[in-house]
């Protein structure tokens, strides 16, 4: 009977939250089992997971296919780099990690707001057209980063400082793998939990309604352009935060962080993981990157071919994504198991 109550409790929690907690527990104890250099790698994967969360939110939940989400990641990366390197004209003395994170997220969110406002207001720029325009924006951003000397051109900006606990970059630097790992995991968990709350809120439900039938939602009085712009802004801000954290770990910002290639990659991670579920999308990013790190040595250039094939197979055969499908099946199994116990009582 107690087992039944326990299972019923698990079922109430749902497959999604349960798998999130499980993944969090696994990652929390992982440092006890892997070598230290692996941890630094995983810390980067968690940042990619954060980036994937932003793509899942805008694409999976809101149904807006952004083919240029790396623009916001890259703007966050460059924003963080220029501020913590003391390059912002008039603010050379300000090198605070905290202000840098705020600046990067605000810059990306602000850009997303302006772009969203401009693009969503255009009545004919729906669906694939929006995606293509974002693709062009990513291309332009990449060219801009390459040709703008202030941003270091093709070489990018080097020697970006790591996370500094001081108020203005004058405190302890966090560069050891273990604390970096836990900071990345912690930020990912907190932001993912916040996004999960947004998705479950009434605001999130209206976004879902707009994805399902925009005209019906508009005809109920919801200002769907405003909702989309706000969602896009939020996704841009999260991507910007991911970009900012990325450069503190990676140490430099380059045009590769802002362009089309990374935009396409994040799309693949989210599709392979599962775009309808936040946990699945995040784990998709971590999984693909971990596989890439393990397999690209053996597969070499065939890795991209392999990844492309997996992407096509998932899109065709598993619309929920590999991890999304697993979570779905686990959730159903749990439901059956606990309802079975209920009838036993």
């Amino acid at each position: 009977m107690r087992a039944g109550a326990f299972l019923a409790g698990l079922r109430r929690l749902g497959g999604e939250d349960l798998s999130a907690l499980l993944a969090l527990a696994v990652f929390a104890v992982l440092p006890a089992f892997v070598e230290e250099w692996r941890l630094a790698e995983f810390a980067i994967f968690f940042i990619y997971g954060l980036f994937a969360a932003s793509q899942m939110f805008i694409w999976g939940h809101c149904g807006v296919l952004s083919l240029g989400q790396a623009v916001f990641f890259g703007v966050g990366a460059y924003g963080m780099s220029t501020l913590t390197l003391g390059m912002i004209p008039g603010l050379e003395g300000v090198t605070s990690t905290w202000l840098g994170l705020l600046f990067a997220a605000a810059l990306s969110a602000g850009l997303a707001f302006l772009l969203g406002w401009f693009l969503f207001s255009a009545p004919r720029l729906q669906g694939a057209f929006f995606g293509i325009v974002m693709l062009a924006v990513a291309f332009i951003a990449e060219r801009l980063a390459i040709n703008w000397d202030f941003l270091g051109g093709l070489n990018g900006l080097m020697n970006v400082p790591p996370i500094n606990l001081g108020l203005n970059g004058d405190g302890a630097e966090i560069w050891e793998s273990l604390p970096v790992y836990y900071i990345a995991l912690g930020v990912l968990a907190v932001v993912a939990a916040l996004l999960r709350r947004v998705i479950a809120s009434s605001f999130g439900t209206v976004l879902l309604a707009i994805r399902e039938r925009d005209y019906r939602t508009r005809a109920l009085g919801y200002d769907i352009i405003r909702y989309r712009v706000l969602a896009f802004t939020l996704a841009g801000g999260v991507a910007g935060l991911a970009g900012a954290l990325f450069v503190t770990q990676f140490g430099f910002a380059s045009p590769a962080l802002i362009g089309f290639a990374l935009s396409a990659e994040v799309l693949i991670w989210v599709a392979v993981g599962g775009r309808q579920s936040l946990v699945a999308a995040i784990l998709g990013a971590v999984l693909v990157r971990a596989l890439e790190s393990g397999l690209s040595a053996q597969l070499g250039d065939y890795w991209l071919l392999f990844l492309g094939a997996v992407f096509v197979a998932v899109v065709l055969l598993l619309p929920r994504g590999v991890i999304g499908e697993a979570i779905h099946l686990a959730g159903r199994g749990l439901g059956r198991l606990s309802s079975g116990h209920d009838t036993d009582q």
Binding site: T205, L208, A209, E212, R213, Y215, R216, R218, A219, L220, G221, Y222, D223, I224
Partner: peptide, 24 residues
């Protein structure tokens, strides 16, 4: 007025093709 503002004034429509949220 824009469509959502007209709806906010109290004019609510049922579409010819049933337009409900299938996934919800």
């Amino acid at each position: 007025l824009k469509p959502h503002d007209i709806a906010r004034c109290g004019v609510i429509r049922k579409f010819q093709v049933p337009s409900v949220y299938d996934g919800l």
